[in-house]
Nucleic acid binder design. Structure first.
Lengths: 242, 242
DNA sequence: ATCGCACTCCCCATTTTCGGGGAGGTGCGT
DNA sequence: ACGCACCTCCCCGAAAATGGGGAGTGCGAT
């Protein structure tokens, strides 16, 4: 295993992260950090199921392509595990059972990924979700030492990468150009809680017709196809809390 | 202004945060940190629209009560501003216009809050959203110096407070009783993406009748009242990613 | 090898939602 | 004082979802 260099050497990269201007800059920083920390791979990427992709890192291009083509986003236990956690997670603590998952793992190994991993979930406004991951091949004990030693560094790195990414891709954030009105939010919230329109209208002490107007306008503002879609988008963007 | 102590002195509190066992512990840590950093106030609190409250800090009790009673949650520019940002924000950069907001500000001052503030937004799984705030009275230049010097400390503190809070309140992370089958998850995912039943069935290359069976069984497993509710629950539990 | 579970298909009638339209009142910021 | 966004109410027909029922295939586990 490479030498695990301490925080001080990461300061350069931290400083560079704050003034990143292009995705290529971000990419070169992941490579520099990978070398500084002496690990096999370091990756930052946005997690979107809708095909949009944003990320950088040192995974082989073949693996990135395959990952997307195969729809591994929906299989990868790292995604699922991090989605339900706040704190960074060691890959060993995830659930790797299941046929599809085992095949995924095998495929990952075949593409040169190490069996040790440590991933930091990051959440931004409007339901943004991203991951910052370090990947390596070494013994469990060595990995434990590494991850414990650099845990805080990695959290800060994840934070800085996300900050840089949000600066580079402002188009992802200001989707809420038309914010929902209080009544619209209330309406969607009740629907998300399982109320039907009659019940929701009753709960808000308004007519069902009025409720429909709210749902309709919320749907238009959210660019949603139907009520379920509107509720899903509102939840995804974090503008309603259930 | 008090002396702004550097990161090293915060290490004690960081260590204590990792082993916190009660809300009172968390409370005492905010007080210790306030004194260490030499600021007027330091606060961590959950932001829930549904009235549930979880938090700790050094704001006067009278202010906390008033804040809740008056529903300032929906007025406070700090909440709104942080909700739309990823990076910590200086209160001066927020939008303080509006009649209600000005009255809110006046009320805050009257309750002993300083005019300088720096707030760190934190997001967890299941749409959790929390804030970590430091508040003080000093000149703009002094505050600028302070916030720049301790920015990274405050981000890590926010992270650790949230981690501790999530450990203390596991009730916010519901467990998955009966796991959904792959097809059920696919079905719900497509619905969350705005597909209607015919489109979803087509996308999965199955009959609409079959799709209905999945939705039905998923609804039962999730204890949901209707399709929208089922999708909302699945998203809330993080078992589908949209 | 048997059991359970996931997967697939089909019927019925009833309830709910959708997608347009119009119309009047309030309160806030410029 | 004006506009603008919000809130509230109502009409219609067409489309979609719901809630039951039954019935056959395969796969993995006990």
């Amino acid at each position: 295993m490479g030498q695990f260099i301490r925080g001080a050497s990461a300061e350069n990269a931290l400083a560079r992260l704050e003034s990143v201007e292009t995705l290529a800059d971000l990419q070169s920083i992941t490579e520099a950090l990978r070398d500084q920390y002496g690990v096999d791979h370091m990756v930052y990427h946005w997690v979107n199921s809708d095909g949009e992709q944003f990320g950088c890192g040192t995974y082989p291009q073949a693996w990135v392509t395959r990952y997307l083509d195969q729809g591994y986003l929906r299989i990868d236990p790292v995604i699922k595990g991090c989605y339900q956690r706040f704190h960074p997670v060691d890959w060993k603590r995830l659930d790797w059972s299941g046929k599809a998952v085992r095949m995924f793992l095998q495929d990952a190994r075949a593409h040169g990924l190490g069996h040790q991993g440590y991933s930091v979930p990051i959440r931004g406004p409007n339901g943004q979700f991203a991951l910052f991951t370090v990947n390596h091949s070494c013994t469990d004990a060595e990995w434990e030492t590494f991850s414990q030693m650099h845990r805080r560094d990695l959290i800060m790195l994840a934070h800085d990468f996300n900050h840089a990414a949000l600066r580079l891709e402002p188009g992802r954030t200001p989707r809420e150009a038309t914010p929902l009105s209080p009544r619209e939010l209330e309406a969607l919230t009740l629907l998300a809680l399982g109320y039907n329109r009659a019940q929701a209208a009753n709960a808000l002490s308004i007519s069902e017709h009025t409720l429909r107007v709210y749902i309709e306008s919320a749907r238009h503002k959210l660019g949603a196809q139907n009520t379920t879609h509107a509720v899903a988008r509102a939840m995804q963007r974090g503008i309603i809390v259930v």
